[in-house]
Design a protein around this nucleic acid. Structure first.
Lengths: 120, 120
DNA sequence: TGCCATGACTCAACATGTTGATACAAAGCT
DNA sequence: AGCTTTGTATCAACATGTTGAGTCATGGCA
């Protein structure tokens, strides 16, 4: 079940991406499952095709899904196990920074720096 | 030495904040050091007062500096040791996610979720 | 080969974030 | 008390990000 809150400050495409990523991570969407087409999902959620397409594109860049052209988009095997370990490591990191009293926003920026991600 | 790249996609206030945070973290700016006034720094860097003020405000929220009204802004003792441990933990996390091949942008979002930070 | 359902692309309207000029409030100093 | 220097708040102009409608390119299939 996916719900988009139009009143939320986080944009719809990101809400959708996050919810799909979560369902993949907790196996609600098993590896190999075919996702709905972007038009179908857009219609169901009353979103623009573009919005759903962007969520799918980002999931593909992250290695969570594969798009096989005409055949549709599928949950990829590669990313799922990696996600588990990343979540576990993230919990460890969160525990450290909260225990030393670092501001969460700053903690995120520190990780961005460590990963070499261009800051927001 | 602080340089602001006006052509960079990361906004000036964030560039400034990041560079000050780094100088505090590597002790170029020792605990107790008085920072330049926002007007002085704004003039030196050819920025608006507001831009420097925002960088200082965020550093204060993060616990890295203290502003003592009329007397100016100073590097705070509290945050610095915490920063060290956070940086160390962030390097650990970065090592894990890169070793399992997670996309850096996704790795950042996973940490945001673990920290309960509202996504971008 | 023609069909047609799939995701990718383009572009204008709109929403949000950022900056810079200006005015304000607080507080130490003489 | 008055002056001066500090950071703070307000607000309009501008830049960037997001959305939605429409069009295009691709490729499997009868």
């Amino acid at each position: 079940m996916i719900v988009i809150d139009a009143a939320s400050p986080t944009p719809p495409y990101e809400q959708l991406r996050a919810q799909l990523a979560r369902q993949i991570q907790d196996r609600s969407l098993a590896v190999g499952t075919r996702l709905p087409t972007i038009r179908r999902l857009a219609a169901d959620l009353s979103l623009a095709v573009n919005t759903v397409a962007r969520a799918y594109r980002e999931l593909e860049e992250a290695g969570l899904i594969e798009t096989r052209g005409r055949a549709g988009s599928f949950v990829s095997a590669a990313g799922v196990q990696a996600l588990d370990r990343a979540h576990s490591a993230a919990r460890d990191y969160a525990a450290v920074v909260t225990s030393v009293g670092i501001d969460p926003a700053e903690a995120v920026r520190i990780v961005e720096a460590a990963l070499g991600v261009r800051q927001r």
